[in-house]
Design a protein around this nucleic acid. Sequence first.
DNA 1: ACATCCACCTGCTCGC
DNA 2: TGCGAGCAGGTGGATG
Length: 286
Amino acid sequence: MPELPEVEVVRRGLQAWAAGRRVTDADVLHPRAIRRHLPGPADFVARVRGRRVVAVNRRGKYLWLPLDGGDVLVGHLGMSGQLLVVAATAPPGPHLRLRFGFADDRDELRFVDQRTFGGFFVTPAADEDGEPPAAIAHIAPDPLDPAFDEAAFFRALRRRRTGLKRALLDQSFISGVGNIYADEGLWRARLHWARPTETLTRAEVSRVVAGVREVMSAALVAGGTSFDTLYVNVDGESGYFDRSLHVYGREDEPCDRCGTPIRRDPFMNRSAYTCPHCQPRPRRRR
DNA sequence: ACATCCACCTGCTCGC
DNA sequence: TGCGAGCAGGTGGATG
């Protein structure tokens, strides 16, 4: 999926294009795209139609859009979701799942999602203004959020008995981090993905948080990471941060710090990339 | 409660 | 050229 920087690129594009405007129509072209909206497609369309988008917010990798009238439109891009602003007359393409029409515009907002892991739903707003809805309250603040509490993150890690990368990918501890930025942050911090969380020092946690922050901030400036045309902004343009990756997807290539060939390990049905010299494996496996 | 795993999808690449 | 296996940026719910 798009991770935090890619989702933030989309959020900014949407905020500029959709905030303050009224949805005039919505279409559900694939029911899986709204599977988390339990009342179904007709109810989804009815709750969105005629509503004004007040703002476009993000919590981790979730987008949440308060609507006038007290509901919130929540969306997640999954592994392959795109939000695109295109002419309403443009051909639909094979993976078009949702369309949203807006007042006084010949362009429309499209949710295009090849693998259909992404989706949208409408849910009541939180009691507190500016807070994410209850449906995504389990998502922790991300490391770029001023609300992110590093000391609390450290305490939570020490309480947890798992490996460091597993914890980084757990969105209830720290959000926005996915497979790419976890590996890149760990490389910057010179820590191994299997490091037991209960043995981490405060300084090591600072290093990994700083590493993740740096790599995400740099990726944001580059418009996000794209290896192909799957990850794009609302205008369909790819970011170029893949040129700045140090370990992710670089098996057997030399480490940019020490020249040691980068190693790929199977990890949770995926991969973990490390420099075996800069990030030695801890004695205890996980 | 906590930690781990896998199903949910489509499409591309690789080796035979 | 065809075909099966493996892989891809995520998540929530089931399972132990």
